[in-house]
Simulated scan of single mutants.
Amino acid sequence: MIELIHVTKRFGAETAVEDISLSVARGEFCVLVGTSGCGKSTTLRMINRLIEHSEGEIHIDGQQIRAFREETLRRRMGYAIQSTGLFPHWTVERNIGLVPRLLKWPTGRVRERVEELMALLGLAVDEFAGKYPSQLSGGQAQRVGVARALAADPDILLMDEPFGALDPITRETLQEELRALQARLQKTIVFVTHDMAEALHLADRLVVMHQGRIRQQGRPLALLREPTDDFVASLLGGEDRGLKEAALLPVSERMLPLDPRGLARERVGQHASLREALSIMLWRHAERLTVVDDDDNPIGELSLRRLVGARGHE
């Protein structure tokens, strides 16, 4: 869906991005992560030509991006940023419907799309459609920004630190909503963050950048287990990588059949992470947990020895 081939970007004598190659498959959630100034936002903005690349090629669906008019290319891609970019004197409804109106959709179709997206993102139409950005909380404004990015039903969604200014609870809620949206809509997403926990939680493909280059890319578990160098290992959490891996794996990966000796008193859901299970064990001073399904029926057990001593088949 998106392919960068030996792409370089220079600003005068300064090289911001140097000779990077990256392929993002259709429907993949790709997260660019790295320290400040590593080139991740520049890379994102080259994809929709907000910044022009200096060397190399960028393809969308097999076609070079410079074959498109800039406006045409950008309208094919949703774009969400940390500051939301909402027009302060426009209502929520008008902000979300911006791109469909530019594409000259019929008024009724624009209205239907706005209402559909507001419902999808948990914004009651009667309550929020007529409000202005200044009347919204940070989380609500960010939802409007995501809705606007999705309004013209683009195949590609570019997101630059979209949740970076939010409090931890709101940020975690929106991460879960974005994961649920991705599961339903199957958009191709390129997401920039400096928050490694957020990157690991969201990514299908994780791309670690440093000083304008890609240092390593692949599935989050693969990078956690086999970082290519000390920089990547440190960025991924150093000695904390084991806990970060545990946060990615569900309890069902290490679950054993029910123990005939009886059920453990403390319980954990099958979809909980191994990190959550470990936290329960530490908090409750328990070496065994009964694993329950969505209806709270016992389906297996997890022991501390099993949790720390065996890897599943992931």
Results as ranks from 00 to 15, higher is better:
R265I: 08
G138S: 08
L157E: 08
R111T: 13
D229P: 05
A233R: 10
H313T: 12
R26D: 09
F29E: 11
T173E: 13
T91Q: 00
L150I: 09
V110H: 11
V268N: 00
H6K: 15
R215E: 14
E176G: 05
T84W: 11
L73E: 13
V125T: 15
V192R: 12
A80P: 05
V251P: 03
H271K: 14
F11D: 06
L235A: 09
L103T: 12
A151R: 13
D160F: 09
L178I: 14
R109K: 15
R305D: 10
P106Y: 14
Q186M: 02
E287A: 14
I20V: 15
H285W: 05
T188F: 01
E127W: 01
L235S: 04
P106F: 12
A129H: 11
G145S: 07
R101P: 03
T35Q: 08
D294E: 15
G122P: 06
G238V: 11
V125R: 12
W90P: 00
A147P: 05
F128E: 09
A147K: 09
H271C: 03
I156Q: 06
L22N: 09
L32M: 03
F87M: 12
T8M: 05
A129V: 08
G138N: 08
R26Y: 03
D126H: 13
H194Y: 01
Q142T: 14
V99G: 01
G269W: 00
G242R: 14
T84L: 03
I189H: 02
I20H: 02
L120T: 14
A141D: 04
R49T: 15
S54V: 11
R148V: 07
L73Q: 15
R306P: 02
V33G: 05
L243A: 09
H210S: 08
V232I: 05
R215Q: 13
H313E: 10
F11A: 06
G269C: 00
E226D: 13
W105F: 05
S21C: 02
A13K: 15
E52K: 15
D294G: 07
R26I: 03
G37K: 10
S273W: 00
S303V: 12
Y132N: 10
S137M: 01
P162R: 06
A272P: 03
M1P: 10
F128K: 14
L22P: 06
L256G: 04
M1D: 11
E177W: 11
M118F: 06
L166F: 08
S134Y: 12
K40F: 04
Q211P: 01
V144R: 00
L103F: 05
A124C: 03
I65P: 02
D167L: 12
S252T: 11
R311Y: 04
M209D: 00
R111I: 05
G312R: 13
R267P: 02
L120H: 09
V114H: 00
F163M: 08
A147T: 11
A129N: 08
G37V: 12
T43N: 02
H285N: 13
I65Q: 00
D295P: 04
V291S: 00
F231W: 07
A25I: 03
I299G: 01
L302C: 07
